[in-house]
Amino acid sequence: MSRNAILHIVLLAATIAAPLLFPAYNAFLATLWLFIIVALTWDMTGGQMGYNSLGNIFFYGTGMYVGAVIAIGMYFPVGEWTDAARSELFLMSPGQYYTGLAVGSLGAGIFCALAALIIGALTFGLRGPYFAIGTLGVAIAGGEIVSNIEWLGGGQGISMPNPPGDFDSFKVLIYYLFAGLGVVLFIFLRWFYQTRFAAAINAIRDDEEKAEAMGIHTLRYKLVTWAIAAFFVGIAGSISAFQLIHFEPLETAYQTINLGIFMVVCVLLGGKGTLWGPVIGAVIFHVFKEVTWNYFLGGQWIALGALIVVIVVFFQGGLMGFFRRRFPEWFGVRVETKGATETAS
């Protein structure tokens, strides 16, 4: 067995064992997986395709609302539920709860993928910073629109049904949902980045006009890539809705200045356009964030700002980019003559 395979198995075992070994850190680890998911999906367009979206948080927020509406709406009228959040108590059986969680999350993923196709068709005409600002506008508008719809609880947000069973095992369940989604996403991307599809979006990143001149179906690849990313973010959003039990539109769901920016910082920290970069970046960033939030409260935003400055000034390609420049041969960059390949193989 190769060293690489052993590394993957060890990581997978650690992922499965983590909540049992460190029960006190369950919430921390669940959020870590959320960061990995949003970083990996952001990198699909930002790193691999060259479209720096600041609006991916839109799919997170929309995923929350769609997941909640489906889960509640399957059994109760949504308007009455949100209206009665404080006064009247609706009760859900465990069966209803878990069905709602599964169907709601899947529905959220599909809804967000379709939304990405529509928003993408409108915004992929924008290039560079204009695309970033355009998508940021979509995310901000999303939050503002939702907070004005009374049916969705308006600015109050939505209170989700209480999880059945004891709270500790619920936290373990949430961890495994995020971790499972993250692992599926990682395996999917590992395969996806080997396909011709991925080569096409890399070509779009490097020179879109050239890609068009070579006959590549640029818009089609851009839309499908973003839709796949939105699918995973939407599911993650829905799981978050169940995890948080109560959420509101501007600070939790469409949190453009928090998670919406954090996902970008994670990728920049780890290295854009690589498979492992967003994962490594998410781990470092999340640990850094938790440490400063816990031990440096009051100065946490300053520390975060300093971190971003350091990355942008000294590590423009992120950690993976740094290694790539120092050790290009690790990444298969080498001069190879015909004779050399024959002896090597």
């Binding site: 080569a199 890399n202 490097d206 020179d207 590549i216």
Partner: peptide, 12 residues
Amino acid sequence: YGAMNCMQNMLI
């Protein structure tokens, strides 16, 4: 395509 290697440039 500058960030891709020559083979990737050819294959796409």
